[in-house]
């Protein structure tokens, strides 16, 4: 007995050290990429200019620092975190490590409904505001989620679910392309950029709305970490632990839907972040405990998107890549790795 207490405390000690180091690394990476993102670009800024631009409203570089760089960095942080979190929630819900908003077609569903709504309103000369964009996108996300849920009730194999999700994604993307072809010329360029995924078009007033949606969703998700942990043991045991399964499942669906809808509304569909980041975080922290994973996924998603956006902006400057093509280059191999590992372990 005394022996077991000792070993228990020892593993707890190493876990705590891992936690501290992990979060310190993530925070350092976040700060590092924020700084790099401010500095790098068509106008290279010095450290002094950056600092001056941040704190002094009269600074000559204020416009670049705030209205070119920061307005893009903050949404990359918030939406990157939101994507990773949404992926983590979907993985919990489907008990499937490669579930994510993009792979399951949820992002594409949001994109479809949002572009139809946008074109509809624009043709009448009305521009959508942030709240309307999120709402339309949320409706699309829920519709796609509805299809995925209906399919998941029929098929139990995880690979089938993913294939169906990818198909839903293709159908939605195809219809979106079709719809955009019919839009007025003036709308096409903007819509086309957005439909590929980009942080470029986001304005300061959008940032406030994004924060108002994503941050409360983050807090709510964190407060759900206890039932999420219970749900990792399967529905039967979760219920026996006192989780109200119906309410909990509804909460997971709504939260992951809101998060991915918010991302799609402002940055378009961004691929693979939702799968890759939670996986990397599980490797980094060697745990799947939601109380660690939720903040870790958020920070990790933020770092991942900042890094990818930096590459998208600067790699082939002055031409910009779509953010999705960069996240895919880094994210897709990770998804393949996850699948190979599951195969090796004789998973489903």
């Amino acid at each position: 007995m005394a022996q077991s207490r000792k070993t228990e405390h020892r593993t707890e000690g190493t876990n705590r050290a891992r936690l501290c180091i992990g979060f310190a690394l993530l925070l350092a990476a976040l700060l590092g990429f924020v700084f790099w993102n401010i500095v790098a670009g068509s106008t290279h800024l010095s450290i002094r200019e950056v600092f001056d631009g941040l704190v002094n409203p009269q600074s000559s570089q204020r416009a670049i620092v705030m209205n070119v760089r920061m307005v893009r960095i903050l949404p990359a942080i918030l939406l990157g975190g939101a994507l990773a979190l949404s992926g983590f929630l979907l993985q919990t819900f489907f008990n499937n490590p490669i579930a994510g908003p993009f792979i399951l077609g949820i992002s594409s569903g949001a994109k479809l409904v949002l572009s139809v709504t946008m074109i509809g309103f624009l043709s009448r000369g009305i521009a959508l505001n942030s709240v309307m964009m999120i709402t339309a996108s949320f409706v699309g996300a829920m519709l796609a989620m509805g299809f995925v849920l209906a399919i998941s009730a029929k098929v139990k194999r995880m690979s089938m679910l993913i294939i169906c999700g990818v198909m839903i994604g293709y159908i939605c993307s195809a219809i979106t392309e079709f719809v955009i072809r019919f839009a007025d010329d003036s709308n096409i360029v903007k819509l086309h950029d957005w439909a590929q995924g980009s942080f470029a078009a986001i304005k300061w007033e959008n940032v406030a709305v994004i924060a108002a949606v994503v941050l409360p969703a983050l807090v709510l998700t964190f407060l759900l970490s206890k039932p999420i942990g219970a749900y990792q043991l399967g529905e039967t045991y979760a219920q026996n632990m006192g989780v109200n399964i119906r309410a909990f499942r509804a909460a997971l669906i709504l939260l992951s839907g809101v998060l991915s809808a918010c991302v799609t509304a402002f940055a378009g569909p961004i691929s693979f972040v939702g799968v890759a980041v939670p996986h990397l975080m599980r490797r980094l922290f060697k745990t799947a405990k939601p109380i660690v994973m939720i903040p870790a996924c958020f920070l990790g998603g933020a770092v991942f998107c900042l890094a990818c956006d930096l590459i998208a902006r600067t790699a082939f400057a002055p031409n910009e890549l779509s953010i999705s093509s960069v996240t895919a280059v880094f994210g897709a191999p990770i998804v393949i790795l996850v699948m190979l590992r599951r195969q090796k372990e004789g998973g489903r």
């Binding site: 206890k226 632990m241 599980r282 799947a288 109380i291």
Partner: peptide
């Protein structure tokens, strides 16, 4: 059940769920 990255102790500890607070 095959929870990912959970030790046996962690699984047994889930029995305390109804007794722990908001964050478990």
């Amino acid at each position: 059940i095959r929870p990912e990255l959970m030790t046996c102790w962690d699984v047994a500890a889930t029995g305390r769920y109804p007794y722990t607070g908001r964050l478990g």
